[in-house]
Design a protein around this nucleic acid. Sequence first.
DNA 1: TATTGTTATACTCTATAACTATA
DNA 2: TATAGTTATAGAGTATAACAATA
Lengths: 162, 162
Amino acid sequence: MIKTAHQRASGDTVAPRRDLQRLVGYQLRRVGSLVVKELSRILSVVGLAPGQFSILMLIDEHISCFQMDLARLANVDRSTLVPMIERLVRLKFIKRSQSDDDGRAFHLQVTPRGRKAIEQVMPDLRAFEETITDAMSAREKSALLQSLHRVEEALLRRQSTE
Amino acid sequence: MIKTAHQRASGDTVAPRRDLQRLVGYQLRRVGSLVVKELSRILSVVGLAPGQFSILMLIDEHISCFQMDLARLANVDRSTLVPMIERLVRLKFIKRSQSDDDGRAFHLQVTPRGRKAIEQVMPDLRAFEETITDAMSAREKSALLQSLHRVEEALLRRQSTE
DNA sequence: TATTGTTATACTCTATAACTATA
DNA sequence: TATAGTTATAGAGTATAACAATA
């Protein structure tokens, strides 16, 4: 009695997984992409994608920073930032102003409109946080966060020594 | 005394982060993208990207599955799979054979060559696992993995109720 | 010479909608 | 009608290399 693919439910797979699920790297990638998918939905009400919003948040936290600062903070190449910054400027969520001290660089600042977008979306983001840490105790939650920070540091270390 | 962006070291940011680092969702996305970056490097020796390799692994674990099975297992749309499958077939890492029971569907199976690619890359992947769980005890590691599975389940639940 | 930012280009991952062939 | 898979298309995120302007 053979089932079609669509007749198989989630827990009813073709064969058992072996060790894929036990790989932290695999699981991080998997969960990361699910998070992005959900964030896309939430952030679409202000017209931003997850990456763009995270840049907006970083600018908000680092008043009057340069793009090179952001590249380092977000762990991306400076060229990656260009279209994101462009998008945020076009939506008038941030303001660029040439630095007096350095003619090559631009100060980036969140505008009131950008602040409003952040505020508008925060309740949903907090609800999202609640969802993903649903069945966890406060202790578990902070352990998870700490582990994630450790993984991040290990990855950054590894990256810089190559 | 103003520093240029490049003079600022990693721990020496323009202003302190506030709560971004404490958001599990943000941190998962951040770490997820670092993982992908590193996996890209590791897997490039067999000519695969992280997504493509994860599909190869899933096929290996679910002998003779259909693309619809994979879509569910990998949490992606069936159309997303097409170019990945194509790539794996072109590299002769998997084999497609039409199902006798269902003329629409194809059985997917890893070839010896595909197995070899997996084996070739496993040592580096294991070393990568070591790196990212570097300073963690066995207890911490399994707690992290468990938390990640919980987050995944919560996300899948949320996704399916929309 | 080195740095900031841009441009051109390319690849991966992702989805939606419309399509073909089969059930 | 519904399902398996494809195609066309689009957007997001990522990087490398070469460039202009400035330091």
